[in-house]
Nucleic acid binder design. Sequence first.
DNA 1: CGCGACGTTGATTTGCCTCAACGATTGTGG
DNA 2: CCACAATCGTTGAGGCAAATCAACGTCGCG
Lengths: 192, 192
Amino acid sequence: MFEEINKYVLKCADLNVDELAYFNSLLISKKVPKKTFLLKAGSICDFEAFIVHGCIKSYLLDQNGTEVILTFGIENWWISDITSFHEQSMSQMYIETIEDSELLLLNPASKNQLLEKIPKFEKVFRLMLQRHLASYQERIFGNIAISAQDRYLTFLKKYPTISQRVPQHLIASYLGMSPEFLSKIRARLAKK
Amino acid sequence: MFEEINKYVLKCADLNVDELAYFNSLLISKKVPKKTFLLKAGSICDFEAFIVHGCIKSYLLDQNGTEVILTFGIENWWISDITSFHEQSMSQMYIETIEDSELLLLNPASKNQLLEKIPKFEKVFRLMLQRHLASYQERIFGNIAISAQDRYLTFLKKYPTISQRVPQHLIASYLGMSPEFLSKIRARLAKK
DNA sequence: CGCGACGTTGATTTGCCTCAACGATTGTGG
DNA sequence: CCACAATCGTTGAGGCAAATCAACGTCGCG
């Protein structure tokens, strides 16, 4: 169960067997069916979840009540409302499974213990933050400077796995276009 | 010179006089006139800059060579290409002063020393990352779910200082609209 | 002074949205 | 195991928000 997450953290920091064992002892395993809410707007996010397997979306609702996808998470990604988690503040975000998923959860108290006892883990989480930041930055640029069709093509190249597993209208939402328009883009591309 | 930055870090972590002094000894002060490049695409970002005073933009170029503003920085903000800085990878980003500015620079070697010697600083930088992440997240949501006019009004409320100091066409770029259209929005708003 | 950077305004175009109707597939309770 | 409802994707018609293009005014500054 811990194989994947240990492989992940070892890519970020040099850790011995004992340190890994301590880390693993803090994690809470959880299996959830698809369409399960891990977080709803109005509550406080008390976990950072490592996805062992499965597929998860996080999103906000706009004024019409339509989902705006913030991130997709699949195997070997973390998902959380980072702000709400760290500041124990009310979240505006929904986090919901798209597939049956197996997670390893870290709660705030455990994370603090972990960082106190093994400061090397700071780097693991800093890299996680940086990765998110880089991906958000690309999206901001894309939404401003790139046409809907090119955003879609870039997405296909960058996340081939996700594009096969996630319903098309969610991808449209992630890319900032209507589901109908994405469908038309695909039709146009298929004709060539 | 160190007054502002020390106030800033004390908000994030509990530090004594010696720790602050050591921190300050690692910083490099730099004064630069406006329209100075601190970073150009193609090079590696070797600083995280705390802005003592002044105003700075970071941006990417789209395929037409037009600036797409990523962030504005003013007093008490950090500015850097975080990815390039930490991974010592080639940046795609430009960082350029808008006003004469006074900076305190931290280079990668110094930052590592600092974190090694005083791990409490981890939190300072983690909060910096989180703040950036939260602001990027809002922008992604805004660009997808909010009209140009409302994005502008939100910007005015959230960054009143910046909106008074930065040329209008840069704000338009930040908000993801053409300068002409922002001008029309302002004309429309003024009529009421 | 004259030039470049900046903002405005109007005419025209367009990329994308909205709405609506319609299959196809999946899932589910009776 | 079927019937019916969701869920999902497609297609077309029409509309609108914002982009583009172009011309012009204004300031600050070398």
